[in-house]
Design a protein around this nucleic acid. Structure first.
Length: 426
RNA sequence: GGAGAGCUGGCAGAGUGGUCGAAUGCGGCGGUCUUGAAAACCGUUGUCUGUAAUAGGACCGGGGGUUCGAAUCCCUCGCUCUCCGCCA
């Protein structure tokens, strides 16, 4: 959420910031709500003050045994008037808050202006697109050729956009997961957490998926309604909801492996072939909660941690700075890592690393006692995929393929595969 | 699934309709004393909102109600604990 105080005081600046990403702020609506709220709130509060004062007087008079009837008569109408004003005030506040929750974050100054992913800015390339002496296959042909990737059976069990993996490929996915977790916990200083895969609405509001993106979430019929997590970002980040964090433990760096569940409501017909866009996929997620002054540098550091996985797997990738039009709802700045996929002859997103500044923290009420000011202040949050395991599996399959359809096991994964170096048929 | 108990400030724990935002203890912070430390003693110590600064307002698990007045009474939801049953 954007700072309501800043919206009140400097609405034009906010509107200008939002227009960079093509979002039009309803200035008139906010001004109308604010005009009525301001007066009503001070009226309500003085009525409350009056009520408190007279209740006190009645109490004192009663204690002395005096007749309180005149005092009671004097405040006879106060209660009704107060109730009416309170009701209208909370209506206004709810209306304002509902609207504020739908406002996206303002892009950082260093985010390039643009409308779509075509305007994203390439920061760097690592490695060269893998070359083959033969025509490389995509992961679907490779996986089906090995009889280890089965979309039809998944569709029978569940529906489209699910997959069943067997044997070496199933194990390769598990190896990737374990490797990533070990790298981030042992080399990069993250604490491993295990979290719920079903979360409540408050958690999704906290990180920004609700109220605006309800149609993207899988839900349960349970009461209270629970949502399947679209990313581990939700449960990990919500650990610090409604918390005041001790300065000594900052920055908090946490990593979890979870399945992720997405409706993909807006992408019918997109990436229908293969495992690129599934309703259920594995991801290792990095989340950081830090002091405001260290967050900008932390984005580079965290992105570097995700990049390290690709480097160690020797997978060619490029890093892009998302333009204002491609930026996610809660983000001020996002670096995407795109891995080279020979089967598609292109780079595809495999990690998205974002700095939210205080946008999520304000929704979450995540604060720290700043030792410099002695005050409770909002922290900054970041997260990044480290990496999307399902897509990483695709990348390994396609980049490590042999002409006969077998797949070499990347060196760093071999210990996680019991020393196996090749995945082949039979 | 059945029966019961509870949810109060960083923690423990009082408070059952009227100067209660809340006793007391512990912890934290500051000070006195001390060569230093401990002990002891003194002071201080929740969050949010609001103001130029005062003032004012809200918060005792969440929401609603009764009342001039609610931490305290009623309803409802959530959570924790104990016992019984069931399942693993």
């Amino acid at each position: 959420m954007l700072d309501p105080l800043l919206i009140r005081k400097n609405i034009n600046q906010i509107a200008a910031g939002l227009s960079r990403r093509g979002f039009e702020l309803d200035v008139e609506l906010l001004n109308t709500l604010e005009a009525e709220r301001k007066g009503l709130q001070s009226e309500t509060e003085s009525l409350q003050a009056e009520r408190n004062q007279s209740a006190k007087s009645i109490g004192q008079a009663k204690a002395k045994g005096e007749d309180v009837q005149p005092l009671l008569d004097a405040v006879a109408n106060l209660s009704d008037e107060l109730k009416a004003k309170q009701a209208r005030l909370s209506e206004l506040q709810a209306q304002t808050n509902d609207y504020l929750l739908t406002l996206p974050n303002i892009p950082d100054a260093s985010v390039p202006q643009g409308k779509s992913e075509d305007d994203n800015q390439e920061i760097r390339l690592w490695g060269e697109p893998t070359r083959f002496e033969f025509e490389p296959k995509d992961h679907v042909d490779l996986g089906e050729g090995l009889s280890m990737v089965d979309f039809n059976t998944a569709a029978k069990i569940s529906s489209a956009r699910f997959v069943v993996l067997h044997k070496g490929i199933a194990r390769l996915q598990r190896a990737l997961t374990q490797y990533m977790l070990d790298l981030h916990t042992q080399e990069h200083g993250y604490d491993e957490v295990y979290v719920p895969y079903l979360v409540n609405a408050d958690s999704l509001i906290g990180t920004g998926q609700l109220p605006k993106f309800a149609e993207d979430q899988f839900t349960t019929e349970a009461d209270p309604k629970l949502y399947l997590i679209p990313t581990a970002e939700v449960p990990i980040t919500n650990i610090v909801r409604d918390e005041i964090i001790d300065d000594a433990v900052l920055p908090l760096k946490r990593v979890a492996h979870t399945p992720c569940f997405r409706r993909e409501a807006g992408s019918y017909g997109r990436d229908t072939r293969g495992m690129i866009r599934q309703h259920q996929f594995e991801k290792v997620e990095l989340v950081c909660v830090c002091r405001p002054e260290e967050s900008a540098e932390m984005l580079d550091t965290l992105t570097g941690h995700a990049e390290q996985v690709l480097k160690n797997l020797n997978l060619p990738y490029r890093m892009v700075n998302l333009c204002t039009g491609d930026l996610g709802f809660s983000s001020t700045k996002t670096y995407d890592l795109e891995v080279w996929l020979p089967g598609q002859d292109t780079y595809r997103e495999i990690s998205s690393c974002s700095l939210f500044q205080d946008f999520q923290a304000r929704r979450l009420k995540t604060r720290w006692k700043n030792p410099a000011t002695g005050k409770n202040e909002l922290l900054h949050t970041l997260n990044g995929s480290g990496l999307a395991v399902g897509r990483c599996l695709v990348a390994v399959m396609e980049n490590y393929q042999n002409e006969d359809g077998s797949i070499r096991v990347p060196e760093v994964l071999q210990p996680y595969m019991g020393g196996q170096t090749l995945i082949s048929r039979g």
